[in-house]
Nucleic acid binder design. Structure first.
Lengths: 201, 201
DNA sequence: CCTTATACCGAACGATCGTTCGTTCTGTAC
DNA sequence: GTACAGAACGAACGATCGTTCGGTATAAGG
């Protein structure tokens, strides 16, 4: 048995992953380094890697945790709005808050991973693509609901709108952060509302 | 004097940079490695780095060359369209062609650099930000011209539209490439035309 | 012919990379 | 009390990182 209880071990592992997520959000998932992370956590390289077995397994765990963090702060908190346009509106607001806030110190994690792996094959690319596709599907589902409710024009393709929202959010947050433009996310929010057929408020 | 003529040296240096741009477009500017690039070029590490002096100087030269490649294939080729909305339309088409084509084997270079440096200070971040700001200004200038010509509604902010076009292009190309979505860039083009006030054709 | 400047090479530098060992420590089970 | 499981450690591995240095070949200027 472990020298700590199972619950404590899990908590320690999750704290490890949380630190890794923060570090990788700045340095990138590929720039994540066992030595650097071990130093930040005050433990040895071998002790750290022993928790995952592999560097790639660690990266996968970090990616999964980052996706969960996103889902929790954006999707989950919008679920009490009623399905369709209201929920879509809530998603956009939570999304912007998430990009603005300090959920990830280095900007949207999935966007970083998308750029890192969009031209490089491997399991991490597959996992990232899976997450993006799943998110696009979730958006599309809500848009379809809004169209069915008559809250959105029926002549537009739901997948188009979903793709556009995702492009605006990921592209806008990167540009705003890079150019130190404090109004960038306001612009992004307005553009997303316009793309979703919401009056610009 | 060099053992080759100055012109030949320049050509060789430019061929070196061109290779480096292609490699960095896949691996990232930060993932660019002297050893790897030297191997690809069939020369020694010391011979390669001697051309630039520094790795960071090499990265800066590669970034500059990539920006020039973008400017040449997108901005320059749209200059024969008349200023204002026609030129903006031409820019969008060249832009999409550029993202679709094989100008960069690993996707839009500036987008990759933007994500790599958006949370990491240094001269490379500054250079990337400068390029993005300059591009946003160029777009904004054309949009202003279109508004002055009466081709675009005067109630919208030119900087907003420029920012939106940039977000759509960079976000859309990454998502399309990552998810292997062949229609992604068509969607991006349609969204950009809609954002620019052009009828969707 | 001789000097000089330059491009490139090969070798080596210390640092860090990811990974693999053997060991130690600490709880739990028998 | 003894055996065992699991977590973490320190040390070392080969590989690669960026960089530095001395030497060599080449081409132009005198």
């Amino acid at each position: 048995m472990p020298r700590r209880s199972a619950a404590a071990v899990t908590a320690s592992r999750e704290r490890t992953i949380a630190s890794a997520v923060d570090l990788a959000s700045v340095e990138g998932l590929e720039g994540l380094t066992i030595g650097r992370l071990a130093g930040d956590l005050g433990m040895s390289k071998s002790g750290l890697i022993g928790r995952f077995g592999d560097k790639e397994a660690m990266q996968a765990a970090v990616l999964e945790a980052a996706i969960a963090r996103f889902t929790e702060t954006v999707w989950l908190r919008a679920q009490d709005a009623e399905p369709g346009l209201p929920r879509l509106e809530a998603i956009i607001d939570r999304w912007i808050d998430h990009l603005r806030g300090e959920v990830f110190p280095g900007g949207c994690f999935v966007t970083t991973a998308s750029v890192e792996y969009d031209a490089r094959p491997g399991p991490l690319r597959a996992a990232t693509a899976r997450a993006v596709r799943r998110w696009l599907s979730a958006l599309e589902h809500e848009i379809r609901q809004a169209i069915a409710n008559g809250d959105l024009a029926a002549d537009r393709d739901a997948a188009d709108i979903a793709f556009e929202l995702h492009s605006l959010a990921s592209g806008g947050s990167v540009a705003a952060r890079l150019t130190d433009d404090p109004t960038g996310l306001d612009r992004t929010r307005a553009a997303m509302r316009r793309a979703a057929g919401l009056e610009t408020t």
